[in-house]
Design a protein around this nucleic acid. Sequence first.
RNA 1: GGCCCCAUCGUCUAUCGGUUAGGACAUCAGGUUUUCAUCCUGGUAAGGGGGGUUCGACUCCCCCUGGGGUCACCA
Length: 485
Amino acid sequence: MNVKTRFPPSPTGFLHIGSLRTALYNYFFAKKHGGTFLVRIEDTDRERYVEGAVESLIRTLDRMKIDYDEGPIFVNGMLNEKGNNGPYVQSQRLDIYKKFAHQLVYSGNAYYCFCSKDRLEKLRAQQQEIKQTTKYDRQCLSLTKDEIQKLLASGEQNVIRMKIPEGKTTFHDEIRGDVTIDNQEIDDQVLLKADGFPTYHLAVVVDDHLMGVTHIIRGEEWISSVPKHIMLYKWFGFPLPIFAHLPLILNPDKSKLSKRQGDVAVEDYLAKGFLVEVLVNFVSLLGFNPTADREIYTREELIGSFDLKKINKSGAVFDVNKLLWMNGQYIKMLSEEELVARVKPFLKREVSNDILRRICTVEKTRMNLLLDITSIVELYLSQPAYEKEILIWKKSNKEDAIEQLKNIYQFIKSIDENIFNDIQLIEQALTLYIKDNDLQNGNVLWPLRAALSGLERSPSPFELIWVLKKQEVMNRIEHALKILS
RNA sequence: GGCCCCAUCGUCUAUCGGUUAGGACAUCAGGUUUUCAUCCUGGUAAGGGGGGUUCGACUCCCCCUGGGGUCACCA
């Protein structure tokens, strides 16, 4: 089978976490079956139009390394597109939708409606009051041909509505099985709005067919409007695609993932220093598990094991905690060179490559976000301020701390420069120093480490010495001694 | 509220009629360590309730309950 999937975001200015997963699943499915994946911009709501939204969306997909075979792209900084089924921006396809909407009017499956928004609002309010299903009352359906012609000729505002027939509509969903909905529940959906733009329902059906889409993989919030789509497919004589409705991604309180309860924009997570591969890995596992004995998967593994049949039916809470853990895991797997490269865009000040590399080596195990680097770097670039109390080990006292720091200062001063280029050698030298002088680790190491970091918790003194180098180490010990006396 | 969907540890999940119900995050305890982090070991923790079907149900069916989604000239 020739598989073709699609990702149709509305241009809201950012990529929602839930949309990311939808995009990923469509992308995985197409890749897995050697099919085609297309991106289409669904900008039929001009009231929600956001300047530059398409551009930022393309950029984000690019950053997420989700490549598509058809859709809008940048060519030399200009918005363009690739593929033979364009345009891929719905606002540029208005004539097409208009043609199809009118076709439905001629065939009797749709009709003009001239009701004002005001009237519709009142009608809805009335229906709600008597706890009735809110539906259009079909007032305009009784208009005669002449009346319609007259209204049309006078330029009266109008929309085109579906004429929902009686009966029931059943469709098959790859994830949920058969779903049946009584047509009585369905409103006479507007297909073509007064401003000449189509609604989502008309546009998706027409575009998915015209663009050759075979599988529609999208969020569960669409499941109740599938019957409308089925009718349109039937009326137009289009073959039905395969539907798969994904479970929702949820807030901790189990409601649909939304702003308000934390970040939902992929861009925000990227800005915090979550790795692209982590976002892909983590979001993919919300509702789908390749093997269940593992959490870390490469993109290739995800593609290889992707299967609509393996997708869960129930919604999944988006647990930022676990995301954070996974990010830490990936960071630890990165080589020092890679980490340096990843961290660079987050730097707020100049750092030499050598020092940055050393910092990354030493701090890797305690970094969960790439953004952490900004505060970490400060520690090494300038003498930190701190209270003298932290220089004193809990099992010791101030006098001993001074004594130890004075001695270690002399010792470090005496060490050969070459030693400072190897953490192992530094550790050996210090360990030997402690042993030879019959000292205790804590008495020496704690004040030293505190003097170098100004922190209660930090990397080991050996690592700090390696990054700071001889002169700065001596400076910081001197500083500590000054504070203590 | 009508309709639709869903239901295993707090969270993400495995199980596709027979398991001591497994893994991961979180959490707790311990080990390594000058501290933190990492790492290692171990623990607490789950099939919403009621009926069936069956020799046997987390697993299949029904009801209830609970949660969610949807009811726009938004997607």
